[in-house]
């Protein structure tokens, strides 16, 4: 177990290191000089040079990379070119929206997908199974931002149950936050829940055809008991893999959904930063997203070991 965890952890660190190099150099090789963008076209050459020195842009690339990474490790994400404020603070403000949204959506996904997938698998081939699977086909195919727009039309504009957009802020209380995050979370979760329910069902069906299920039935377990006591935990491994991947889709999908609901999350930040060519912000947000994905994958791998004694032994 220790060995397994340590090797996974080393691989996490290595992935992060490589990812940071990729991100930094991908964005650094770009054409365009941030200093001249910040000062506008009419900037004096000496002011420009002063700003470049202040931003550290006159340093060699490797030195700037090292400075950036050292900063990241200390929680210093640099200074935004356009706002002249610390990027870290900007990100923290936006994360207060984006992270709860992603987690809320992930929670909904799991809460919807597990019962549906298990129910369909236990009634394989029945009318209920076929119709539920038909519905998940629709759920997989629906573009989440379009679904979000339709929900705005129905629930916010016509029924007026929810606000059409904007974020009340955490100061307004949990209820207000839930009110502004529920539609976006549902829009994000529905397609992912459809995918996960399908994965859950097929993983369960695969497991139910294994030899050890027959052994369990020969002991006197009913189909139901065999499913709950023996098949479910074995089916969990592919399901965990998908949940891990879905988290990254939810984070990334959140960027788009935030646009539909005018939520002040990372998505808005990144689009503002792109149009303003505020590269420090783009770099940092991308790094943060990638870090989140890699971290979640690490957690999923630990979860494998919790489920499977064969991995624990390593």
């Amino acid at each position: 177990m220790l060995r397994y965890t340590l090797t996974r952890f080393l691989s996490l660190c290595l992935s992060l290191a490589v990812a940071s190099v990729v991100i930094f150099f991908a964005i650094e090789v770009l054409p365009g000089d941030p200093a001249s963008i910040m000062l506008g076209v009419n900037a004096q050459p000496d002011t420009l040079a002063a700003l470049r020195a202040e931003l550290g842009l006159d340093q060699p690339m490797v030195a700037r990379y090292l400075a950036w990474v050292t900063g990241l490790l200390q929680g210093d994400f640099g200074i935004s070119y356009t706002y002249r404020t610390p990027v870290a603070q900007m990100i923290v403000d936006r994360l207060a929206v984006s992270l709860p949204l992603a987690l809320y959506a992930l929670g909904l996904t799991v809460v919807i997908a597990f019962p549906v997938g298990i129910w369909a698998a236990s009634r394989r081939g029945s009318v209920g199974d076929v119709s539920i699977m038909g519905l998940t086909q629709l759920g997989v195919a629906i573009p989440n931002f379009w679904f979000a727009m339709l929900m705005v039309l129905v629930f916010a504009i016509n029924l007026q149950w929810f606000s059409a957009g904007g974020f009340a802020g955490w100061d307004a209380g949990l209820f207000a936050v839930l009110k502004s995050l529920t539609l976006p979370a549902v829009a994000l979760a529905l397609p992912q829940a459809s995918i996960l329910a399908r994965v859950m069902r097929s993983a369960l069906l695969d497991t139910l055809s294994e030899d050890f299920i027959r052994t369990a039935r020969a002991k006197g377990l009913s189909r139901r008991q065999a499913l709950w006591r023996h098949a479910l935990r074995n089916a969990l491994i592919p399901v965990l893999t998908i949940i891990g991947m879905q988290f990254s889709f939810l984070l990334a999908g959140g960027i788009i959904i935030e646009n539909v609901f005018y939520l002040p999350g990372l998505g808005r930040l990144i689009f503002q930063a792109i149009s303003a060519r505020d590269l420090v912000v783009v770099e940092s947000v991308v790094m943060l997203l990638v870090f989140a994905v890699i971290l979640v994958n690490f957690l999923v791998e630990l979860a494998y070991a919790a489920v499977d004694p064969r991995l624990r032994a390593r």
Binding site: E210, D211, F212, R214, T215, A216, A218, H230, R233, N234, V307, D308, P309, R310
Partner: peptide, 11 residues
């Protein structure tokens, strides 16, 4: 059963 390698729940 015939196949002891797969007849038991691995978990």
């Amino acid at each position: 059963f015939q196949e002891p390698m797969t007849a038991l729940n691995p978990l």
